[in-house]
Design a binder for these strands. Structure first.
Lengths: 338, 338
DNA sequence: TTGTAAGCGTTATCAG
DNA sequence: CTGATAACGCTTACAA
């Protein structure tokens, strides 16, 4: 005989609704009854079936983490990995499980959204800000599927957790300026991602504040890896070469840029170098790479907290939570080795 | 009115069981009926609710990926990340979704197994070989929950996908020998993990085959990071110092060892250095680190293929699938710079 | 405070 | 080939 709520009810001589109420901590249950039921539950090690509960309560207990990249571009970097694990842990503290939602191909999100919107696979979503699909995002709203974005999406009102990208880029640029670099180039990741444009804004702010030249030549938006390499090379070997680079994305993107620099024979900090996304291995890169560090643990917690509130139909305090990022300074940007 | 199978049945003037049969490609449905139903389905964009289907069919459509480490120790490394994303993609090709199962604390797997065994949260599991919990693993068997292990577990018969760890370590050691290193030390990761003992075996094999000294002093099993650092330092600065190190684990573990080496003032390839787990950033480490590279994409696919067969009640061809690992040689182990 | 009964949206069985 | 009808195991009104 399989262990179901009926069996528990039979053993405890109560109805299954009583068992259900006990298990879900409903009020208005006699103390003795409650204990009697709990005793049986303990003895039998009964645990309610998660699917049946989901069907009945219309809550799956699953949260989807939607990383809108193709896996080659994202997970291979170390940025998402911290989030994946931290979010999983944070969610489980609220009895939610993490379902990983990745598109087969870059940006192909239809299948995922059908799963969410039509088939009810999750109760809510945490979505990477690289998801630019306004259509689907508004469908989520229309269908009352709670979601939080990791990273703000500009033209859309939504709950989000992010760092102050402008500030971070500004600080990073100022650090390079302090070190004596004067022609600082910006190597921007895909510019349709909001954080890249915010970072570009911060860079520009620092440049103009310090009365340095802000020129089109020093601004390199990402197109593809092939062109990236060529342009990085030309930007630091040209007639009026850049003497430092700020790279607005980490992981493989940063490594590509680093490769290109090395190819020219120059090497940070000869050419100053600061990147985003801090990892332990940057300590061991040749030379160690300065990078903007995001408080991923706090951000994970913040996003889960917001989502959980939404799921409870509570109103989170803030619509947008921002953290300050820190700059982790290493040799790649230290012109003046003090 | 919510869109359910009943609604489709009503619109198509058939019973819901007919709709169900059409949707699940059952044989014995009149062609016209089938088309009529499919037409309505298409028009309404109906998709069956995943939870209701799960309850009725007793199949959740979810596969759990159990990484038995605390997140700090694992996901932060880059080893699992490739697996996580590849497995997700492979699974979705079979209409399964990936549920990430991580313990709050190192090795605390009870909660996870209760979720799996008692509450039916997944149909099957892919489990990291670091899971040594025989009790729970045999419970899985008793409960007919299909699972595949990523990495073989020695004292337990199960389906597994792994590399030939002994061979890989042997090759890596022989590479060091060819380079002229003679006192090669083994820095083993946690020895209760089978792959570490297999790698130690391969190391030993190479050492003895080439008539080098195999001594207790050159064998450093992992205890904790503090001791690891101390012992690495003493092993390469002692009276009869090691001239090369083979490290049986990658990620942070490898970086710890590298830190310790550098502390002594020595630096690979002065002290030869080969690690496990190949990542792109190893190209940029100072010096670039030679590492054993696992075919993670193929391994992910293999493990999913096995699991899917098991879920279909088919017998996979092999109980244990092994891949050969490759050695990615970089400067850290090139004594003779040709 | 407890129990009855009606769902939840599917799939599965079996009769027609 | 099609359709009632009964599961699946739980939650939740509502009645007692």
């Amino acid at each position: 005989m399989k262990l179901t709520i009926n069996e528990i009810a039979r053993l405890a001589n109560v109805s299954k609704s009583t068992v259900s109420k006990v298990l879900n901590n409903y009020p208005g249950i006699n103390k003795n009854t409650r204990e009697k039921v709990l005793k049986i539950v303990k003895e039998t090690q009964y645990e309610p079936n998660i699917i049946a509960r989901a069907l009945s309560s219309k809550k799956t207990g699953n949260i989807g983490l939607l990383i809108p990249h193709s896996p080659e571009h994202t997970i291979s970097g170390a940025y998402w990995t911290t989030f994946i694990s931290r979010i999983t842990i944070e969610l489980s503290a609220h009895d939610y499980n993490l379902l990983l939602l990745l598109p087969h191909e870059e940006g192909k999100l239809e299948d995922i959204f059908r799963l969410v919107l039509k088939r009810g696979i999750v109760d809510g979503l945490i979505i990477g800000s690289e998801c630019l699909d306004r259509h689907w995002l508004s469908e989520l709203k229309n269908n009352n599927i709670p979601f939080v974005m990791l990273g703000k999406n500009p033209d859309f009102t939504h709950y989000s957790v992010d760092i102050d990208n402008e500030d971070a880029a500004c600080k990073a640029t100022e650090h390079l300026i302090e070190q004596g670099y004067r022609r600082i180039a910006l190597i921007a990741g895909p510019i349709n991602f909001y954080y890249n444009s915010e970072r570009a804004k911060g860079y520009r702010k620092a440049i103009t504040t310090h009365s340095l030249e802000y020129s089109r030549e020093l601004y390199l938006p990402y197109d593809n890896y092939q062109r990236l390499r060529e342009e990085v090379e030309s930007i630091i070997t040209g007639a009026a070469p850049a003497d430092a680079l700020l790279v607005t994305a980490g992981g493989d993107f940063m490594l590509e840029v680093l490769d290109s620099i090395k190819k020219t024979g120059r090497k940070p900090p000869q050419t100053g170098f600061v990147s985003f996304d801090d990892y332990r291995y940057l300590d061991h890169i040749n030379p160690p790479v300065s990078a903007v560090s995001q408080p991923m643990v706090e951000m994970s917690k913040a996003s889960v907290d917001i989502l959980v509130k939404l799921l409870k139909k509570q109103e989170p305090e803030e619509k947008e939570v921002f953290f300050k990022a820190k700059l982790n300074i290493r040799k790649s940007s230290l012109k003046n080795r003090n």
